[in-house]
Simulated assay, not measured.
Amino acid sequence: MIPSVQRHPLAAQTADALLAHIRSGAWPLGHKLPGETTLAARLGVGRSTLREAIRELAGKGVLDSRQGAGVFVTALDVAEERGAVLRRASVIAVIEARVAIEAEAASLAAQRRTPADLRAIRRALTQRSATDHRIEEHVDADMAFHRAVIVAAHNEVLTELFDSFVPRIHVAMVGMLRAHPLASPEADHAAHQALVEAIANRDPQSAANSSRSHLSALKRALA
């Protein structure tokens, strides 16, 4: 049973209570927390206080609030500085792997895409460019866009590789954007638009270069 919170500030105390419960092992890594109403009642706080506490722990990388899915445990404690360095290295490794997969897929997509593929890519780009996304939703839309490009390559091995890698990509990209928000969303959108146009124009070299350039810029932002 989680002890109810008595002292102020309530949000900070609630965050401490949640973290203590996670540290105790009651909620393992990847576990979904109870629903908001249930959890607030068990803690003896209001739902707005609980939300603030969850936001605090999400900012520290302990929890991840996913639209329509719930709140999940993504770390068992608040990361120390060394942990942050390790996570940064992990993100760089993920980006390097994305370059290997996606640059080749972009080149193949420019050669093999069908009109239906191109429509799907353009729809995904429009969804990705929506301005009201939270970080998690933005990453979901970004993954959908890049998957549409890979599907257009008509190489089932590349698609399977990407699909198996998506959970790791999602965690890494959410963590990266929390620590390093996009300096220029406009430039980021333009880079994706350039990739779409290269595929539309059936220019494999430009498509590969656009994919590689975009991902390399993300990597440099972490240097």
Score class of each variant (00 low, 15 high):
209 N>M: 13
23 R>L: 10
151 V>N: 01
51 R>A: 12
60 K>C: 03
139 V>D: 06
69 A>K: 15
186 E>M: 11
187 A>P: 02
119 R>P: 00
117 D>A: 03
2 I>S: 08
20 A>G: 11
78 V>N: 01
211 S>G: 11
44 G>S: 08
125 L>A: 12
45 V>F: 05
37 T>I: 12
17 A>W: 05
215 L>W: 07
136 E>F: 06
82 R>A: 11
112 R>P: 00
178 R>G: 07
56 E>G: 04
92 I>A: 09
36 E>S: 13
7 R>Y: 14
196 V>M: 09
58 A>D: 15
189 H>V: 10
189 H>N: 12
160 E>C: 00
102 E>Q: 14
175 G>H: 00
162 F>M: 06
200 A>N: 13
17 A>G: 06
210 S>A: 15
35 G>N: 14
70 G>I: 04
116 A>F: 05
39 L>D: 08
174 V>K: 04
119 R>A: 12
111 Q>P: 00
8 H>M: 10
111 Q>T: 12
155 N>I: 04
169 I>L: 03
192 H>L: 08
190 A>P: 01
139 V>T: 02
69 A>E: 15
204 P>Q: 12
19 L>Y: 03
222 L>T: 04
11 A>N: 10
131 T>F: 15
25 G>L: 05
134 R>H: 12
15 A>F: 04
103 A>Y: 06
212 R>N: 12
38 T>G: 08
147 R>E: 09
211 S>D: 11
116 A>N: 07
46 G>K: 10
90 S>E: 14
82 R>F: 11
85 V>K: 02
94 V>K: 02
29 L>H: 10
159 T>W: 05
165 F>P: 00
159 T>F: 06
191 A>M: 11
48 S>Y: 12
165 F>K: 05
3 P>K: 14
128 R>H: 15
117 D>Q: 01
59 G>I: 03
71 V>I: 09
204 P>S: 15
100 A>H: 13
88 R>V: 00
139 V>S: 01
